[in-house]
Amino acid sequence: MIAALTRGRLFLRLMMGLAMVFLYAPILSIIIYSFNESQLVTVWSRFSTKWYVALLHDEQILHAAKISIEVAVLSASGSLVVGTLSGYILSRFKRFRLRALFSGMVMAPLVMPEIIMGISLLLLFVGMEQVFGWPQRDVQTIVIAHITFSTAFVAVVVQSRLAGIDVSVEEAAMDLGASPGEVFFLITLPLMVPALVSGWLLAFSLSLDDLVITAFVSGPGSTTLPLVIFSKVRLGLNPEINALATVVILAVGLVSGIAAFKTAFKVLTPGKAIAQEGQDKCVSPA
């Protein structure tokens, strides 16, 4: 039985190791080959940073990057507001009419194929433009679309954080004379800060990365980075894209990943922090 147990553990370790290789090998290969001098992307010649230099002079990419960052900041902030409210509603208002519809609407974009959201939002915008003369297809339509799909992610993060906050803490504040508005701004919101930080970063990177929905709702003047990358990689491998990808991976992946590491860890294990808080040294001088 012991032997079987260790064999089982060995198998699990092996699977985990292989999965990690599977997850990280492509990313590493991109980073490594971005420093390859050869135009033939996968055949190593020698170390060079020339593709990074080329990147710095590519006006099209620089312009698209600027638009992408603008869209990402706006939509992350927008989805932070809508997502925080939605997460708060879903976790604190247990009963209201249409609750099932509401939670369905908030959460469905998590799994809804992007292509459906893309075409439906575009047709809405076109229809609205016909009727109201608004909105023009540019950064604002992209931001609205991005808020709509990334709100769900913020809501999930906020909801799981709220699940770890004892409701009686909010009740206690109310009992001590705080109006519901004060309870939210003085108690709930400060306790949610870690979730808000990681929610914003998540929405930011989702927006920066989105291709399909953006392709539908963007206008001629609002080409984002993924659109540029996609149009280039459809034509095959491109060493400059490797360099760009490395920059994106390092900038978005590492910076936001590290910034969110602690908070995401806490958010994912909300119960544990509370339990530890509750059970530390119970020696009392009473």
Binding site: D166, S168, V169, E171, A172, A173, D175, L176, I187, P190, L191, E277
Partner: peptide, 12 residues
């Protein structure tokens, strides 16, 4: 005023 079973102290 009420004193809560879990004490409900504001952790922050």
């Amino acid at each position: 005023n009420m004193m809560f079973q879990s004490y409900a102290l504001f952790p922050h």
